[in-house]
Design a protein around this nucleic acid. Structure first.
Length: 655
RNA sequence: GCGUCCGUAGCUCAAUGGAUAGAGCAUCGGUCUUCGGAACCGAGGGUUGCAGGUUCGAGUCCUGCCGGGCGCGCCA
């Protein structure tokens, strides 16, 4: 039962009779912001008043008169400037709750308009270790896929792996020059990772060596400029003085930035030069960066040796990634990486060329677009393709293969301009009816508040983060068990710690608005109280505890529901909140915002614990009341299980 | 420089243009021989960066400024 949808439906005829498009206004019916106003509020009378030239309260009155809410709402009030406050009829609530108790879907109807939705998420670079920067796309994308699927859409989740890029050139180079056959045999995943890091380190060293002097020179120039600016006489004009101060500030900041960059380069240099063996290696591989690109080019050109190595390495790299997915309980319907599209790229370029959309500029094949200063490059001057080319080929493939209505790209916001261009090209190319959407999210920042740099070497590995989450949850669990009667064995603690720890981690991410930057903090990500998954999981465990205590089999009332009673205001409040899961899921999909579901689950849990504090369940005054309250507990717990499950988070019977 | 996103309580964050801007954490105080204290109740804490504008109504929309993140042709 979707209460909000029911109410909206009721108001449509009245709006139509006023001569306006109901769709423009029905969205303004919302859950009441403050419970004292009722359950739902209608906010469009004020807006309509202007358009129709009547007093808002008068409009509200006529809307109420011509709208049939009987059976649905027991109380309709016009308040303030023209709000219409609605209170759902208790009997209607009881019926809806009774239906929910006996329904596996808790009364949530499947969408009457199922769409085909492709969701592209996670998409890590194979062969590079996954780090915390990958968690957002993975966790948000997975949650959206689960939610959309539950709501009734046909979802195709697709992991667009970076499995065809320079990183394989690096591994191939490393394998050819640095491999330790025994170590490789013993643990291919780890050894390939080592080879990657070694090549990376040497390559970075050489880049740093060539960049550092230029950078140092640039800094010297800036310093001179800065000194001149500072010693120049103060302008008399106030505006110019301000301008000057600003310019000085800007230069200072720029200097700081460059100095920091230089320090990072020098660190990379000294890391090599301080170790004689490394220095020797670096000297022996002076052309390493060019060679890596050559190995990559050979792979792309179909070189038999490199292709064979790629085929050999890929499964090992995937093992690493899949173990993370397994721990996160994340899956995909399709895993079509960049390599899958490799042989379709030339055709894409040719097609765009033939259609007059692409032209050569400065040696590179470009698609120029209105409203964009820079073109989209689809082929480099050396003939190599770019990720834009792959993205276009991917669009073509997805549309031709799955005919999606919507294609979501769960990718961080730094790529916004890329997607703006990509979608613009796609539309001109003939894919204009699909709703391509960049579901962007904020950058993962370090605890110092600065963006997490992929190249900064000391990133937190994702595997280590998961370990830490589970370790901390286990510590809390063991501490809790000391004075609890509900003892559980060692293996059980391990299992529970996993679900609680990973759940906390995921929830920390999903509970935040996806567009805001994500400040990485162990404390925050592993928090186990307050606005967390743990709090909601605790609700579930407590309800299971009630069943255990009184040997209750919930199946008994799920098949034969008893009447719901509202003797305490919190029983009714909890009942409404339970039913609102349906409208919450719809809300999530309007703008692809899982945090709305997280917020809902938290509020539901808060309401439950208030209810539970004030309404005795097992010791209720009558059997009828006990039965009713047990059903509320059951519904609350099942709603939490469903909602957390849709966020990719599990529940446990004891914790 | 151009583009784009952001600025809300001490901290971390909420709030499709709606009524008195809300949570969590932290702090302080209460509930307690408990239906498993990972709980419940209460208190303090705000000129929503600044200044204008639009409107019946602005944290939200528009303009300008201040401060910050990110991006800006052959990386992905």
């Amino acid at each position: 039962m979707n209460l909000l949808a029911e109410i909206r439906q009721c108001f449509a005829p009245a709006l139509e009779s006023l001569g306006v498009q109901p769709a423009d206004y029905l969205g303004m019916i919302r859950p009441a912001q403050d419970k004292k106003f009722g359950d739902y509020q209608v906010n469009f009378a004020m807006g309509l008043a202007k358009a129709l030239g009547k007093a808002p309260r008068e409009i509200a009155g006529s809307l109420v008169e011509t709208t049939n809410l009987s059976g649905l709402c027991s109380q309709v009030e016009i308040a303030g400037p023209g709000f219409i406050n609605l209170r759902i009829d208790d009997e209607f609530l009881r019926t809806a709750l009774t239906t929910a108790v006996s329904d596996d879907r808790l009364g949530v109807a499947a969408s009457s308009n199922p769409l085909t939705i492709v969701i592209d998420y996670s998409s890590p670079n194979v062969a590079k270790p996954m780090h915390v920067g990958h968690i957002r796309s993975t966790v948000i994308g997975d949650a959206l896929a689960r939610i959309a699927r539950f709501v009734g859409h046909h979802v195709i989740s697709d992991n667009h792996l970076g499995d065809w890029g320079t990183q394989f050139g690096m591994i191939i180079y490393g394998y050819k020059h640095f491999r330790d056959q025994a170590a490789y045999r013993a643990n291919p995943v780890q050894h390939l990772g080592d080879l990657y890091r070694r090549v990376r380190q040497l390559g970075d060293y050489h880049s740093a060596c060539s960049k550092a002097p230029q950078l140092a020179q640039q800094i010297e120039q800036l310093k001179v400029q800065f000194a001149q600016m500072k010693s120049a006489p103060e302008p008399e004009d106030k505006g110019e003085r301000k301008q000057k101060a600003k310019e000085i500030q800007r230069l200072e900041k720029k200097l700081d930035e460059l100095n920091e960059e230089l320090a990072a380069l020098r660190q990379k240099i000294s890391a090599i030069e301080n170790v004689a063996e490394l220095k020797q290696l670096a000297d022996e591989h002076a052309r390493i960066n060019q060679s890596v690109l050559e190995e990559t080019a050979k792979l792309h050109a179909g070189d038999a040796d490199n292709l064979a190595m790629w085929r050999e390495f890929l499964p090992s790299c995937m093992d690493d990634i899949n173990s993370i997915y397994k721990r996160l309980d994340v899956g995909f319907d399709q895993v079509l990486g960049e390599s899958f599209y490799h042989d379709q790229l030339q055709a894409v370029v040719d097609d765009l060329k033939n259609k007059g959309m692409a032209e050569v500029s400065d040696g590179a094949m470009c698609v120029f677009l209105d409203n964009f200063e820079t073109p989209m490059l689809i082929q480099k001057s050396d003939g190599a393709f770019l990720y834009a080319t792959t993205d276009l080929a991917t669009i073509k493939y997805r549309v031709e293969t799955w005919s999606p209505d919507i294609v979501l790209y769960v990718v961080d916001h730094r790529q916004q301009e890329h997607f703006d261009k990509l979608f613009a090209v796609a539309a001109r190319w003939g894919y204009a009816t699909q709703d391509f959407r960049h579901v962007s999210f904020g950058t993962v920042l370090g605890e110092d508040g600065r963006p997490f740099k992929t190249r900064s070497g000391d990133t937190v590995g994702l595997a280590g983060l998961l370990d830490e989450a589970e370790r901390k949850a286990k510590g809390v669990l063991i501490a809790m068990q000391k004075d609890s009667s509900e003892l559980v064995d060692e293996a059980e603690i391990e299992r529970i710690a996993q679900i609680v720890g990973i759940g906390a981690l995921k929830f920390a991410d999903l509970s935040q608005h996806r567009s805001s930057d994500y400040t990485f903090s162990y404390d925050k990500m592993l928090e186990l109280k307050g606005f967390t998954a743990t709090y909601a999981q605790y609700l579930y465990a407590r309800v299971q505890g009630i069943y255990r205590r009184d040997n209750i089999d919930p199946a008994s009332f799920r098949t034969q529901p008893k009447p719901f009673l509202f003797e305490h205001p919190l029983e009714r409040e909890l009942g409404i909140m339970i039913l609102q899961v349906s409208e919450t899921l719809d809300e999530v999909l309007v703008d692809y915002r899982p945090n709305l579901l997280a917020q809902y689950l938290f509020e539901l849990t808060q309401t439950f614990f208030k209810f539970y504090d004030q309404c005795p369940v097992l010791t209720a005054d009558s059997e009828k009341l006990k039965a009713s309250r047990l059903q509320l507990c059951d519904l609350a717990a099942r709603t939490i299980r469903l909602g957390l499950g849709l966020l990719g988070i599990g529940v446990v019977d004891k914790m």
